[in-house]
Design a protein around this nucleic acid. Sequence first.
DNA 1: CCGCATAGGTAGCGTTGCTATATGTTCGCA
DNA 2: TGCGAACATATAGCAACGCTACCTATGCGG
Lengths: 112, 112
Amino acid sequence: MKPEVLKGHLDSILLAALEPQPLHGYAIMEKLRARSRASIDLPTGTVYPALHRLERAGLIESDWSTVSGRRRRTYRLTTAGRRKLREDRASWRQFSKTVSMLLDTAPAKATP
Amino acid sequence: MKPEVLKGHLDSILLAALEPQPLHGYAIMEKLRARSRASIDLPTGTVYPALHRLERAGLIESDWSTVSGRRRRTYRLTTAGRRKLREDRASWRQFSKTVSMLLDTAPAKATP
DNA sequence: CCGCATAGGTAGCGTTGCTATATGTTCGCA
DNA sequence: TGCGAACATATAGCAACGCTACCTATGCGG
């Protein structure tokens, strides 16, 4: 999967990953890689800035912890984040339906 | 529909619009607006540069003409453009399936 | 004559994801 | 003992992309 097509959808995907339970950045990457059968394999330079962006936007919150000597920053959805995810799901459905239709072989005229 | 989600998919949409028959830029905008029931309403500052990009990439070709006093630049797909469109359709299906799956409520663990 | 639809164009901007690089820990294995 | 892989986070700088805002020009209806 070409990387650039993700643009504009990454945030929703990250929020969705955090919906069932809080996760730290590295765990999010693994989860997405697993659930997408490796077709989404995000580099750290994409995930961490994106998480910071989402936190600045108030959609997620984080806490530091240390697990077996390693520092972890665990993120969870805020109320605004859950709301945003709901909206994102709706607009994804709309978007994906529209693009699918436009990519279908278009009739030359109004199906004459 | 938020504009930025289009990123990475605009090219495919333009190619698809040109598949059944050659069109000029303005006509493409109208066609997409009509076929998407106005949910895709591209500004000229998006369409024209994109068409130039596609032409530079060898995916479309153009000819100038004049229709009732107005200069028109009519674009048509090249062979490479048709091939690209075929590939784009395949990767769109893959992409859309993947994102739809990831946006579905994710199980906390492996559905225990 | 004014304004709208038609038709094309560019400059500059902001967002976004990526590459590359950095830091530090733990663990397996040779 | 030492070395690399996995774990874990982070940032600087880049390139691509679509958008806003603006410009030019014609034809037509009111």
